[in-house]
Computed example of a mutant assay.
Amino acid sequence: MQLDHFWRASLVALALGCAAGAHAENFPSRPIRLLTPYPAGLTPDVATRVLADKLSKIWETPLVIEAKPGANGFLALGGAKQAAPDGYTLVVVGDAHMTTNPKLLTSVPYDPQKDFQPVSLFFRAPFLFYTSSSAPYQSIGDLIEAARKDPKKITYGTPYVGSPAHFGGAILAQATGTQMMPVHYKEGAQIYTAVANGDISFSVATIGSGLPLVKAGKMKMLATASKERLADYPQVPTVKESGGPDLVVETWVGLMAPAGTPAAVIEKLNAGITQALKDPELVSKFAALGIEPQGSTPAELQKRIGDELSEVEARMKRLGISIE
């Protein structure tokens, strides 16, 4: 009886394995949904459409983008969490969804490590420090000096508590022993208008967000929050070169699948993304958006999420940041 049970279990396992293998071999055989928490027109949305166009050609299968913005990404991630784990529903996520919100918000309706299976990163975006073109600050050192002379003078704009922009300003203040006051805005456009008008001292933003007002002559780049100068903007010094600490602020965006998606399907999805990210046209379009193509293995993305969850929690405690 025990032997008969063993053989039956073995046959079931073999059948399931064959079915999964056949599914992966034929994948994808129908359109793939990409759920995204980003509003249409923002850099992550545009980049997702560029990537989707390349993947649709590689797989000869349409990729249908469904924008579900709002609610801190809960709508898009909730939809993906409930989807069948077959590779035909993916969700676009940023570090805020996977590593900041779970530590910042008191109630998050998903577990970033248990409810999703990492597929791949697909871009990173470095941040820069911007100020008004008419501001007296010519360097990060000037901002620090002004903050030391008048602790209530220097302010910076952020889109929400715990955002990369918020962390960037808070880390700069803590590292230099100064006070720099965050001002939170509901919309990104309001931040850059306030900077351009001189209502706040500076902002920390991506190239895609700040460049339009720089080109319009209303803002200027003080420094890039990265280890090295950016290849496309070699004239902009790093924060350290500009008289500040060794400060890195960046964001990343990647793709996740529902937990339980077969490993062979994840592998095929990852291979397609890796191929697409090498496409010269995609690289050029990403550069125009101020972002850099960056892929990863599923394991690398999984590790990154785990590491950053710990880092964010420690950083929030160190900086005294909590939801307001």
Score class of each variant (00 low, 15 high):
V12D: 08
Y88I: 08
D115W: 02
Q179F: 00
S209V: 10
A314C: 10
T206V: 08
G198Y: 02
K54R: 12
A67C: 14
A83M: 09
A40L: 01
S284P: 03
D111S: 15
A84W: 05
G254E: 03
E300D: 12
G217R: 09
N72T: 10
K103I: 07
A147K: 00
E60G: 10
G177Y: 07
F6E: 13
M1I: 08
L34F: 15
F122A: 00
E281Y: 04
M180L: 11
T89L: 07
L128C: 06
Q275Y: 07
T89Y: 08
F27W: 14
A40D: 02
F127W: 13
I273T: 12
W252P: 00
S10G: 14
P102R: 09
D4C: 05
Y185R: 00
H5E: 11
G78C: 05
P280N: 07
K152E: 11
V283L: 10
S310Y: 01
M316V: 13
E241M: 09
K215V: 14
S120Y: 07
G73K: 00
R49Y: 12
N197Q: 10
K57V: 13
L55I: 11
E60R: 12
E187T: 14
A96C: 06
L309K: 12
A299R: 14
D115M: 13
V236Q: 01
K278T: 13
G320Q: 13
P118I: 06
Y88M: 05
V161W: 05
A40N: 02
H23W: 13
A96W: 00
S134Q: 15
Q275A: 15
Q302V: 11
Y233M: 14
A175W: 00
T238D: 13
G306K: 08
D279H: 13
L51W: 02
A80V: 08
I58T: 08
T224P: 04
I200S: 06
Q179I: 04
E25W: 09
S310H: 03
S107W: 11
E187W: 01
K227P: 14
